[in-house]
Design a protein around this nucleic acid. Sequence first.
DNA 1: GTTTATTTTTAGATTTGTCTAAATTATGAA
DNA 2: TTCATAATTTAGACAAATCTAAAAATAAAC
Lengths: 220, 220
Amino acid sequence: MYTFAEENYIKAIFKIAEREQNSVGTNAIAKVMSTSAASVSDMLRKLSDKGLIHYEKYKGVTLTHDGSRLATQLIRKHRLWEVFLVDKLKFRWDQVHDIAEELEHINSDELIRRLDVFLGSPKFDPHGDPIPNAQGKFTLRNQVTLTDLQLEQQGVLVGVKEHTTPFLEYLNELKIGLGTHMKIIKINAFDESITIIINQSQKHNISKKTAANLQVKVVK
Amino acid sequence: MYTFAEENYIKAIFKIAEREQNSVGTNAIAKVMSTSAASVSDMLRKLSDKGLIHYEKYKGVTLTHDGSRLATQLIRKHRLWEVFLVDKLKFRWDQVHDIAEELEHINSDELIRRLDVFLGSPKFDPHGDPIPNAQGKFTLRNQVTLTDLQLEQQGVLVGVKEHTTPFLEYLNELKIGLGTHMKIIKINAFDESITIIINQSQKHNISKKTAANLQVKVVK
DNA sequence: GTTTATTTTTAGATTTGTCTAAATTATGAA
DNA sequence: TTCATAATTTAGACAAATCTAAAAATAAAC
């Protein structure tokens, strides 16, 4: 059994490794965990002792098989609980992250097995992120960020990269959610913002930063 | 915000006070918490500092208003989660205690408010225990233990005092659950066991200890 | 009303996770 | 290649929750 702190570190390492590819540094972990590099160093030694990470001083870390399995199971639990909160308890997608962050540490395989069945074995969470199966495998999907679309191209929103409340609330205001249809009608050279039409009706101008956080499936 | 340990102590004190009436001693808490009296002493000082208990050295403790509210809210959360596990996830009543013990520490009033609505605002949990409302008030009910019934009297099972897996599994074997109809057909003077007929069909002989843990509503 | 026995508290240590400050190792630039 | 900077680790300390052993206070027994 692992402590909450250990589990949170493993999740952080997994997430950094996902985007950085190579081995994960102490400072990067400290930033994600909002703590000091010294504290991270302490914890890395413990995680290494428990066989969750490969760790060589000054050389960064990678997850072991056990560490990787723990990470994907935590992500599985987090995302299943988010589906529960949105689908069953009718929370909005911008309200569920923090609660799921607590629920993911509940310790019962049987609970997750039954929750999965109860929810109809969903493959994606309310933010469009894939839910790994019990073996840790993620469902892949053809998707690009909105910034990859050319003028006049169209897409349907299938995911968001940011999960922060301010960002999701901003999308709520724009009436943009999963499934929203988008068409690029202008790309502004000056500030790289783009103008889109959502659901064939409303016109919006959004920043490059916003567009870079929207994942869409291209429609012909 | 309180730690898991603090919350568990408060629950323990509440439960002991419920049956003991007067102020709660260090040893009694140590027994329930499966820890040493020394550790309890340490914690009582902390709980007192936080305003959750009235504490005078060597004199035992009582819950303050805040402590009492915390205890009832924990019980509310525990019992609502048990209803969820049994009604929605189809766990048996003997499987849910430990999981609810973890879930009760999840921290979100909105979550509990919505869970309550989702479950249809149940008034009793899967063991027949009353679920306090958001204000901490319990629904009372006319009930007696099976040992209080006279020969030929009848009752319907509305609750169990013990929540341990062995006891609940024993009841499962006997096909006794909430709602089961029982009629006393023999009271054995020798060992104080009683013979009952359940649901007008099956005959069982049960010990006084078992009977004392069954709470029934008398039917005429 | 002493004297046991029980209950409760204190003292001192340990573990987990954290911190700041200082030392060490690695890296990048001239 | 050496020097400065950045990244990382060590040292030492702290708070939370626990422990064992010993001391103090209360209750019970005679």
